[in-house]
């Protein structure tokens, strides 16, 4: 079993397989974009998917945002008061949320809540031959099923991340100002002085848009590419969550190094 030649061969075939899938995924992405025009003209379908991936994720996103804000408030105060700058709490909470935690945590939650649902839905449609049936009715399943789900996710994600950040800042305010007693005025004014809309808020939005596109693409691809069995679908769901999480964190590093390098 531990024959080095075999091991090497397995490694090689894994890599070839991976590159194969990457190429297929790229071609699939192209097909999604090509079919976007026609599908977006039928916006009720996309609206439906915004409902499923956006509205149904509202509760988890807002509650998580609130808790993350509460924790940030507590930890931030604990650290900042050592340096006698507790009034900077607002700045710390707002910047951490807007730049990193809002887009990243919201995207991770989105991947496990909406992304897995999208994969499951498309995978089951494939397993029960619904996609083939649609294709036989001369309706392209990519345009009818995949594209609305992709754009639904892309549109919902920045809205969810924005809500997450807003709820988090509210949570930080609850802990910092209401519970601990940091001065309300300096909490907001320090925050306003160092948070810039064009830089911090906008870059956070761009991040969440990119994450949304990545998660939505991974989710629809894994569903569409899943093996048409119950087992295959459950494996595809796992892959969606794992691949999305990795993609989000890797993209976050790339985007951050472009956006926030060397500037305050």
């Amino acid at each position: 079993m531990l024959n080095p030649v075999n091991l090497l061969r397995q490694l090689g075939s894994r890599m070839v397989e991976g590159i194969w899938r990457l190429g297929y995924a790229t071609r699939f992405f192209g097909a999604v974009l090509l079919n976007s025009g026609a599908a977006l003209r039928r916006y009720p379908l996309t609206l439906r998917e915004i409902y499923f991936s956006g509205v149904l994720s509202l509760i988890i996103i807002m509650v998580s945002g609130l808790f993350v804000g509460l924790v940030l408030g507590l930890q931030g105060y604990e650290i900042l008061q050592r340096y006698g700058s507790a009034e900077q709490l607002g700045t710390m909470v707002a910047l951490s949320l807007l730049r990193e935690l809002g887009p990243v945590v919201a995207a991770l939650l989105f991947a496990s809540r909406a992304g897995s649902a999208i994969t499951a839905e498309i995978g089951l449609m494939k397993a029960t031959e619904q996609l083939k049936a649609m294709d036989m009715m001369a309706v392209d399943p990519v345009a009818r099923v995949v594209v609305p789900r992709f754009w639904g996710g892309v549109i919902a994600m920045p809205i969810l991340a924005t809500l997450f950040s807003a709820m988090g800042i509210f949570g930080g305010w609850l802990i910092g100002v209401v519970a601990i007693g940091v001065d309300d005025g300096s909490f907001w004014s320090q925050m306003q002085a160092s948070v810039e809309f064009g830089h911090d808020v906008w870059n956070g939005l761009v991040k969440s848009f990119v994450f949304g596109a990545a998660v939505a693409l991974i989710a629809v691809f894994e569903g569409y590419d899943s093996e048409p069995t119950a087992e295959g679908v459950s494996r595809a769901i796992t892959r969606t969550v794992v691949t999305s999480a990795l993609a989000i964190l890797a993209l976050d590093f790339v985007l951050t190094s472009f956006m926030f390098r060397g500037t305050s």
Binding site: A166, I169, Q192, E196, F197, D200, V201
Partner: peptide, 12 residues
Amino acid sequence: ALLFLALKVGSF
């Protein structure tokens, strides 16, 4: 939420 971030949290 975006308006909140723009007006209350950030500056232009």
